[in-house]
């Protein structure tokens, strides 16, 4: 159940009926480390992340972190989004436009901490992602790469138990994407929690991942390592 010391794996079995035309039916495990969810547009990658985070309610299945069920259709368990401990980096990044970079990051920091400790944690995260100098800037004034770094700092601020990334590098140009992929791999690797990284770019999959889950038309068609990515559709 917990291959990496006592760090639990994420277990996903979910059927989501998104529309009359599309139903997702996936089953895979994500142990601590990066699992790349790879597939073409419309294959159900984002819907899978939404189900894990609790933003979409599956019609059937079970989603659990180790032995802790977050969703279980049979047992009628459906843990609320904010209690799952999931950090989600959205494709659009979804930075709060009315808050500064520092306020965005502070939003996810535990409110149990003292204001000083919260401030220290925000500064440390912004520094780690090399955007400390942007702390007072609003998202609208940030470049794509800067916004991506702030979004990642915000996601990590929650001390997540699972990290979900939905094509966060998509909007960036090729060279910046390559540079950030390396940084991302390092930052995510240090966490020691299951990370599910969604992409449809094989270069990104190879740069970031270890394990590979290939999704096609709402079904898992291959589970292996990122070296298999060139054989994927």
């Amino acid at each position: 159940m917990a291959p990496d010391g006592d760090r639990p794996s994420l277990h996903v079995r979910a059927r989501v009926v998104a529309s009359h035309a599309f139903a997702l039916d996936v089953a895979f495990d994500a142990p601590p480390g990066v699992t790349v969810l790879f597939g073409p547009s419309g294959s159900g990658k984002s819907t899978t992340l939404a189900a894990i985070a609790g933003l979409t309610r599956p019609a059937a299945g079970r989603i659990a972190l180790g032995d802790e069920a977050w969703f279980d259709a049979d047992a009628r368990i459906d843990v609320a989004v904010h209690r799952r401990g999931v950090a989600y980096v959205f494709q659009s990044l979804a930075l709060f436009p009315h808050m500064t970079a520092a306020e965005n990051v502070a939003y996810g920091v535990s409110r149990a901490l003292t204001p000083e400790a919260r401030g220290e944690r925000v500064r440390a995260l912004l520094g780690r992602l090399r955007v400390a100098h942007l702390s007072t800037r609003r998202p609208a004034t940030l470049s794509g790469g800067e916004a991506q770094r702030v979004a990642l700092a915000r996601a990590l601020a929650t001390e997540p138990r699972v990290v979900l990334l939905d094509e966060p590098l998509n909007a960036l140009d090729r060279s910046l994407r390559r540079e950030l992929a390396g940084e991302l791999r390092e930052a995510l690797g240090q966490l020691g929690v299951p990370v599910v990284f969604v992409t449809h770019q094989s270069e990104e999959a190879r740069a970031l991942g270890e394990r590979l889950v290939v999704l096609e038309a709402g079904r898992v068609t291959h589970v292996g390592t990122v070296r298999d990515v060139d054989d994927a559709p």
Binding site: V81, F90, F96, Y107, T158
Partner: peptide, 10 residues
């Protein structure tokens, strides 16, 4: 998505 982001941030 902004509201969803807030929810995932606890």
């Amino acid at each position: 998505t902004l509201v969803q982001a807030a929810r995932t941030l606890g």
